[in-house]
């Protein structure tokens, strides 16, 4: 016991200062080797702004089923805009759409898309592109599965009254092959009519 007291008397202060030093050293060392904390920043305003920035507003008018102003996700294409507008109206010139309108083109925010009717196309085609107008005239109009009546659908090969009702019930369609899944049309029937139908 006496030796311990003698040791503490001689080295007690050094031990105390050493413990303070070791504590600082240990804590600093732990800070040095500890992985950096994961910081999660949540900013509602930024999210809202980015959501708004990721949407497009497009005006669709002319020979479509439901003309109007539509809000679509950024990166949407012309084809998707036409689907949102209910597809091409019966009066729309399908030949003009096929020959002139690139459905794969991405739309820009604030853009206007105008679909001319048959008569208008005839008028403008004579002024703009005689060749397109001529070839369009030779083409047979397709049945728009988004807008056609049950009677019109009934005229298609393999489509009877019950399947026509199922097609109308399954609207809207983004692509023609969706009638297989949405309206239960057999693949074999779809293969026969796929060139005679459209979604615009």
């Amino acid at each position: 016991m006496g030796k311990i007291f003698e040791f503490l008397r001689e080295y007690g202060l050094a031990l105390l200062v050493g413990v303070v030093g070791l504590s600082c050293f240990g804590y600093g060392f732990w800070q040095a080797i500890a992985p950096p904390p994961v910081v999660v920043e949540i900013s509602h305003d930024t999210d809202a702004e980015s959501r708004v920035a990721k949407q497009l507003v497009v005006d669709v008018s002319g020979a479509v089923v439901n003309p109007g102003v539509y809000t679509l996700p950024e990166g949407s294409r012309v084809g998707e805009v036409l689907v949102a507008a209910g597809g091409l109206a019966a009066s729309a010139d399908h030949a003009w759409v096929s020959a002139t309108l690139n459905l794969a083109t991405p739309v820009r925010d604030g853009e206007k898309i105008y679909i001319p009717a048959n008569q208008q196309v005839g008028e403008s085609a004579s002024q703009q592109d005689q060749q397109i107008s001529a070839s369009a005239g030779q083409k047979t109009a397709k049945v728009n599965i988004n807008t056609a009546s049950e009677a019109e659908l009934d005229t298609l090969w393999g489509i009877g009254p019950s399947r026509a009702t199922a097609i109308v019930a399954g609207r809207p369609y983004g692509t023609t092959d969706e009638i297989i899944a949405k309206a239960g049309i057999p693949q074999s029937v779809y293969d026969k009519i796929k060139d005679a139908i459209s979604v615009y």
């Binding site: 050094a14 200062v17 050493g18 303070v20 030093g21 070791l22 504590s23 600082c24 050293f25 240990g26 804590y27 600093g28 060392f29 800070q31 040095a32």
Partner: peptide, 21 residues
């Protein structure tokens, strides 16, 4: 100040002890 600096303070304090030795 960074908590890492305590490592250097600790080195300094320990150095003073060893200097005394």
């Amino acid at each position: 100040f960074s908590p890492l600096y305590l490592l250097f303070v600790g080195v300094g304090i320990l150095e003073s002890v060893m200097q005394a030795a």
